[in-house]
Design a protein around this nucleic acid. Structure first.
Length: 597
RNA sequence: GGUCUGGUAGCUCAGCUGGAUAGAGCAACGCCCUUCUAAGGCGUGGGUCAAGGGUUCGAAUCCCUUCCGGAUCACCA
């Protein structure tokens, strides 16, 4: 039970005893005391003044007296306006720190075999172009939220549904066939996904040229788009693919193979991975059966042309197509099928889709459809809907070449980390392997933190002209603090100082120090909230606050030169506890922290 | 047009389940390395919290209206 709850209970008692007012504990407002006032926690008194028939100051004083007498954890209080500021005894803080320091799993709930299972779908790339910054946000959020849910006691299965078929894939294939001259990743030196992406762009250019030619001949824009030879060929290729044409299938397998090899490298560098990968080419026919079933049950209906629809007007939505007139399936049909497959494969208690907010409508519909089809988990699926990454000029567009490439961006970040390290002379005593590792951690740390610190639901802006910072509220700032603490701890160890625990817990500490312990105690709540709200940003911002406070402490107090053994030991234990939270917390964001930098 | 969503410092963002004088970082300017890592610390300047109204002892936060962005409403995925 945390301190707020303990105090809340006593406050409720106080109000009842003093004024006869029944109050639920969770109705009592207890917040951290603002820095400019004395105290650790503050009770808001205004809600009780009516029952007390006294001034806020007088009421606060009476409640304060009661608390002081009935809870040994408190050392003093003061009342300012309607705010009762409580000071917690230093002994309590020291005992708390001692407990936390000895708890290797502090803030983390480890799942067991009996824990509920959460499946998290993320990444979900198309195999016709390389990953860009938008995908990076998706992957980082997906990976991080998986780590956070694990830390909240869930068994987690991370899954990826690869969109490996369709007309867009055929476009790249066709362009390669027509203009590629047999180019391969080996012959070109290009990463496979980039090579295929190149031909996607080639297709688009050639296609646009054909459209232009046709419109100049008098066709309308629409007609030109539909009758351009290239698009007709691509459509034929798709049909050939669906008919298992050996040549087309072979080309498809070859080019997708290149893309997967490229994706693997990108995923590995980003530090994300999957437990189970589904391929749309294997699942896209699933779901038709379910739609037929719904049709028979009368949940869906068939139009004269043979297409199948769901009428969602009673749910405040439109009508939705589920099968085309020719009987082929659409996106929604596939998602129904994929969902069914997954529930056949795993005992899923909760399904989470990490997909951009542009698909809010799709998932709203999917949830309703699954529910109508009788899946009891349909209603409870979670669409973890995140915002777009925008450039200062607006949206990124693949075809217009305004995308920020994932591989390029990671490489640039690592290179600027290298430059900064060299300028500062930080890594002069390290081996080349160590340097490589640190520079990678720092560069990627900066990128990941930059993305994860913002509220996932909101759109965010990325300006490629301004490099991502290494100072201030950044990943490297946090990593640096961790490295500094580790450095002090190494020195303490060399000097043979014992900081395995707190020998004594009865000596005075400063306000800054007790405040740091208070911050530490908030970590489990933050992890829990991050899980409930699906927000890695909560963890990022918490770690930043903790680290900022610690740096002030580090600047103002000396640790190893402190003469009092109790204080020296305490500061080491405090520092080690904070380093541990930094490491755990950053781990939940998928960010590594170096031992030195 | 319907639905959803956002508007906080020059820029990027916190704060939003109502509480004290709205916070950080970047950018600008100034100070601090003979002391545990200066990727650090301290300070200065910078705000009609889009606008107006309402509820309340109290509103950036809740409600309504308006203005300005973004997404979506495909027999694309």
């Amino acid at each position: 039970m945390n301190l707020e709850t303990i105090l809340g209970t006593v406050v409720a008692d106080a109000v009842k005893t003093l004024y006869g007012l029944e109050t639920a504990v969770n109705q009592i407002q207890i917040q951290k005391t603002k820095k400019e006032f004395e105290g650790d926690l503050t009770v808001v008194i205004f809600p009780f003044v009516k029952a007390a028939h006294k001034s806020p100051e007088q009421t606060g004083k009476e409640i304060g007296e009661y608390l002081l007498q009935n809870n040994p954890v408190l050392s003093s209080f003061n009342v300012i306006k309607g705010f009762l500021n409580l000071s917690i005894s230093q002994r309590y803080w020291l005992e708390t720190l001692k407990d936390i320091h000895s708890n290797k799993q502090f803030g983390i709930t480890v799942p067991t075999d009996q824990s509920d299972l959460m499946m998290i779908e993320y990444s979900s790339p198309n195999t016709n172009k390389p990953l860009h910054l938008g995908h990076v946000r998706n992957n980082l959020l997906g990976h991080s939220i998986a780590e956070i849910q694990k830390a909240n006691g869930w068994r987690v299965v991370k899954t990826n549904i690869v969109n490996d078929r369709g007309i867009h894939i055929c476009k790249s294939m066709l362009a390669w066939k027509l203009f590629g001259n047999g180019e391969t990743p080996e012959s070109s030196g290009l990463k496979g996904d980039h090579l295929v992406g190149k031909y996607y762009v080639v297709f688009d250019k050639a296609y646009k040229a054909e459209i232009k030619e046709l419109t100049e001949k008098g066709l309308s824009e629409d007609e030109a788009k539909k009758s351009a030879p290239l698009i007709l060929q691509a459509q034929q290729m798709l049909i050939a693919w669906e008919n298992n044409d050996p040549e087309v299938r072979h080309l498809w397998e070859t080019m997708n193979g290149w893309v997967y090899a490229g994706f693997d490298k990108t995923y590995k560098k980003l530090g994300v991975e999957f437990d189970k990968i589904y391929y749309e080419s294997q699942t896209y026919l699933e779901g038709k059966g379910k739609v037929e079933e719904g049709l028979n049950k009368g949940v869906f209906y068939r139009r004269e042309d043979g297409s199948v629809w769901a009428d969602l007007t009673h749910d405040g939505l439109d009508e939705k197509l589920l099968l085309r007139a020719d009987g082929t399936s659409v996106y929604m049909t596939q998602d129904i099928g994929t969902a069914k497959l997954r529930y056949d494969d795993y005992p899923i208690n909760k399904m989470v889709y990490v997909v951009g907010n542009e698909q809010n409508y799709h998932f709203q519909v999917l949830s309703i459809l699954l529910d109508k089809l009788g899946f009891d988990w349909g209603k409870s699926l979670v669409h973890f809907s995140y915002g777009m990454v925008e450039l200062p000029e607006g949206k990124m567009k693949s075809r217009e070449g305004t995308v920020v490439d994932a591989d390029d961006l990671m490489d640039e970040m690592i290179e600027s980390a290298r430059e900064t390290s060299q300028e500062l002379g930080k890594l002069d005593n390290c081996t080349p392997e160590e340097i490589e590792n640190i520079v990678r951690m720092v560069g990627l740390g900066a990128l990941k933190y930059f993305i994860l610190k913002v509220d996932p639901r909101k759109n965010m802006t990325f300006n490629p002209k301004e490099s991502i910072d290494f100072n201030g509220n950044t990943g490297p700032f946090i990593q640096y603090t961790h490295a500094r603490i580790k450095s002090v701890l190494r020195k303490a160890q060399e000097q043979g100082i014992d900081f395995s625990t707190l020998t004594d817990t009865q000596f005075p500490i400063s306000e800054k120090e007790s405040y740091l312990i208070q911050l530490i105690t908030e970590f489990p709540t933050v992890v829990q909230e991050a899980g409930e709200e699906f927000s890695p940003a909560l963890i990022a911002n918490y770690i930043y606050d903790l680290v900022k406070e610690y740096n002030q402490f580090y600047h103002d107090f000396s640790i190893l030169k402190e003469e009092s053994f109790n204080l020296k030991q305490f500061r080491l234990v405090l520092s080690e506890s904070i380093a541990s939270i930094i490491k755990t917390g950053m781990g939940l964001l998928g960010i590594e922290v170096p031992e030195r930098m």
